[in-house]
Amino acid sequence: MTSDDLLIRGAEQSDGEEIFALAREFAVTFRPERAPFDAALPRLLEDEDAYLAVATVGGTIRGYLLGYAHLTLFANGPVAWVEEAMIERAYRRHGIGRRLLEDFETWARSRGAGYVALATRRAAEFYGALGYEVSATYYRKLLR
């Protein structure tokens, strides 16, 4: 794969099948189901505070990133959060995740975000190499 083969672009409704396949690979706690996915995708594509981009190699989607910009009180304005970032296993370590994250950071800056944050369980080394640092402990409580 060359950098010329890689394209980062906004996701489209027609990308649903390929994104869904990657989302199923991503999920650990939850198993994505098609009906809720199909209901959520158009809403995300219309949400101006949501960023949903895909990375294609040779026209095939090999990764995606879903993130948000939202207002805060403590940070004197908006911040950005990476909700999901997934690269197809065979295409990891080829710069796809880096390019998606850089594009998200550019998008977040354009919205005045003070920082980008995320939670990760398996990719700490990757994010550290891109200048991210541990800032807090992540807690969650399952509601269903």
Rank of each mutant, 00 (worst) to 15 (best):
A11I: 07
A11H: 10
E12P: 02
E12A: 14
Q13A: 14
D15I: 04
G16N: 07
E17Y: 02
E18V: 02
E18Q: 13
F20V: 04
A23V: 07
R24W: 00
R24S: 03
E25Y: 00
F26M: 12
A27I: 03
V28M: 11
T29D: 14
R31P: 02
P36M: 07
F37A: 09
D38V: 06
A39N: 15
L41P: 08
L41F: 06
L41C: 06
R43Y: 04
L45N: 14
E46P: 03
E46N: 10
D47Y: 10
D49I: 08
D49C: 11
D49N: 15
A50V: 06
A50D: 02
Y51G: 01
L52P: 05
L52H: 07
V54S: 07
G58C: 02
R62G: 03
G63M: 08
G63N: 04
Y64E: 01
Y64I: 01
L66W: 13
G67I: 09
Y68T: 01
A69C: 14
L71A: 12
L71I: 08
A75I: 00
P78F: 12
P78A: 15
P78E: 13
A80I: 08
A80R: 00
A80F: 01
W81G: 03
E84P: 05
A85R: 04
A85E: 11
I87N: 01
Y91T: 12
R92M: 10
R93N: 15
R93Y: 11
I96W: 09
G97M: 01
L100C: 03
L101G: 02
L101Q: 12
E102V: 10
T106Q: 11
T106P: 01
W107R: 02
A108G: 08
R109D: 10
R109G: 03
S110H: 09
S110D: 07
R111S: 05
A113L: 00
Y115P: 01
V116M: 05
R121T: 12
A123P: 11
A124G: 14
A124C: 05
E125R: 14
F126E: 03
